[in-house]
Nucleic acid binder design. Sequence first.
DNA 1: CTGTTATACATAGCCTGCCTATGTATCGAT
DNA 2: ATCGATACATAGGCAGGCTATGTATAACAG
Lengths: 107, 107
Amino acid sequence: MEGDILRGHLDLLVVATVRGGASHGYAVIEALRAQSDGLFDPPEGTIYPVLHRLEAAGILASRWERPGRRRRRVYRLTDRGERWLADSGERWRRFSRGVTAVLGGAT
Amino acid sequence: MEGDILRGHLDLLVVATVRGGASHGYAVIEALRAQSDGLFDPPEGTIYPVLHRLEAAGILASRWERPGRRRRRVYRLTDRGERWLADSGERWRRFSRGVTAVLGGAT
DNA sequence: CTGTTATACATAGCCTGCCTATGTATCGAT
DNA sequence: ATCGATACATAGGCAGGCTATGTATAACAG
């Protein structure tokens, strides 16, 4: 990956993939890779702690499932998570506009 | 400011402002604040180490100036810095497209 | 049936880099 | 004289993404 470029934006990406249908940790990783066309490919050691943190913050909620014999922790957005996602999306757009403005015609 | 949201992108922003005419550290801070419409307002303790790091990396070069009696460290882009800026601008656009793609219609 | 790969989770510890706090010095305005 | 703005610098805190490692189940190749 490209350094720590996700720093500060990873929570948003993870919540967005859960919102978009990625129900458990492993699926989040695959969704990020697929939807970013291979650009984002975070290791498991990055994603699982993020999911725990987001659950502790009340943004996600989880329950265990076992579709075969293998267990999965399945996540969904809480109401608070929905609001958080909307706010964070707006924050991202502001940030992105800010960077673009600073870059200006320079590049 | 909004947490560590600049993490991983600050070097790009600083180099872009120098490229855009901000010749010394204090001016970089003001340029970032002005050009981002107040969104980015990094403290001096953030910017000066960045400038030192960028100079050590051969991206910027500096010399001392004293327009009055007060000294300034005046920066310019090296040739390598010009190339680095072009590459980093491209990296930023890829990153931005990636995030937008992951957000999808979700927000 | 054994080894390898994919699926699925988890945590300890490292390291980067942005921030807070603090210090120095010059200059204009009050 | 004092305060704010200008201008530089560095030490130390700390969040968070990454590496490394460990567990377990399933599928498939040879």
